[in-house]
């Protein structure tokens, strides 16, 4: 590599997403109150919390679909809030993330392959059509869809295939950062495990950073490097599952040590790995 290693390591240390003092409110209902969170380069960060604690709102705030009341959000070193939406720096950040919504959010009037081509067409209109189609084709295969999925419409796909097609679209621009909103919800355990495996493999081969919202304890154990717990309008703890288990918070204990948590922990193929310098 041609780059200065010192500079490279300095950049690697900077978090890819940095959230400080985030406040979100819907009417009288306070969702986030001074929430802080860092997502480091190259990690899979799992975000957990009870229903209604604002996991999806957090994701929507980061990607700019929800305007927070106060706080600071930096993604890839760019401040995201209070900016002109057409700012080229913001556009450059948007090109470097991919988002998988909960139910895939595929465009229902387009086929799978057209769906995957939408970001390419939008951001790189000068790209030759043939290359664009080839890219769509290998992305579709890369996410584990069968080779006849290209011309199908979303309504013809099963839930798991919709998610894979959504993932293919999220990966269309070769992003550095991937947001997954409950990717295994609604999948059968085999499909969910396969999806986890696929996510891990893609993360390693493509060097992705993944922000993953999930309720699936198996996913947390299988692929997350660190887990952030949202409760009481804040991120109350971030760390490996083992680190979280050592904390004495009732919700965390209930969550990971409840009957489901214990089973997932016992069967875990990949127990939580400590990441250097993880804050308690």
């Amino acid at each position: 590599m041609t780059q200065d290693p010192a500079a490279s390591s300095r950049r690697s240390d900077a978090p890819i997403i940095e959230i400080r003092g985030l406040v979100n409110r819907f009417g009288d209902q306070l969702v986030h109150d001074g929430l802080d969170l860092d997502v480091r380069r190259g990690e899979i960060l799992g975000v957990v919390g009870g229903s209604g604690t604002g996991k999806s709102v957090l994701m929507r705030s980061i990607i700019g679909l929800q305007k927070p009341e106060a706080g600071e959000i930096n993604v890839l070193g760019e401040p995201m809030l209070d900016r002109d939406p057409d700012d080229p720096a913001l556009l450059a950040v948007r090109k470097r993330w991919g988002i998988l919504f909960q139910s895939g959010a595929l465009f229902s009037t387009l086929t799978v392959s057209e769906n995957v081509q939408v970001p390419l067409r939008e951001y790189y209109p000068e790209m030759p059509r043939q290359l664009r189609e080839e890219i769509a084709a290998y992305k579709i295969l890369m996410t584990g869809l069968p080779d006849n999925a290209g011309p199908k419409f979303p309504s013809e796909l099963s839930g798991g295939m919709k998610k894979r097609a959504g993932l293919a679209r999220a990966l269309a621009l070769d992003p550095d950062l991937l947001f997954l909103d409950e990717p295994t919800a609604g999948l059968d355990p085999i499909g969910a495990a396969a999806f986890d495996e696929q996510t891990r493999e893609l993360q390693q081969t493509l060097g992705l950073t993944i922000f993953l919202i999930t309720h699936d304890l198996d996913t947390l154990h299988a692929i997350c490097d660190r887990v952030a717990v949202i409760a009481d309008h804040k991120v109350i703890a971030v760390g490996t599952i083992d680190e979280l288990l050592a904390l004495d918070h009732p919700w965390i204990q209930e969550y990971f040590n409840g009957p489901r948590g214990r089973i997932a922990h016992g069967q875990s193929r990949h127990p939580g790995r400590p990441v250097a310098g993880a804050p308690a």
């Binding site: 590599m1 690697s12 890819i16 380069r41 190259g42 890839l76 550095d176 490097d225 990441v275």
Partner: peptide
């Protein structure tokens, strides 16, 4: 499963550079 040490995936360093 391989170790995910931080500098493993070299393509981040174009980030911001």
């Amino acid at each position: 499963m391989g170790q995910i040490g931080l500098p493993r995936n070299a393509n981040w360093h174009s980030v911001g550079a």
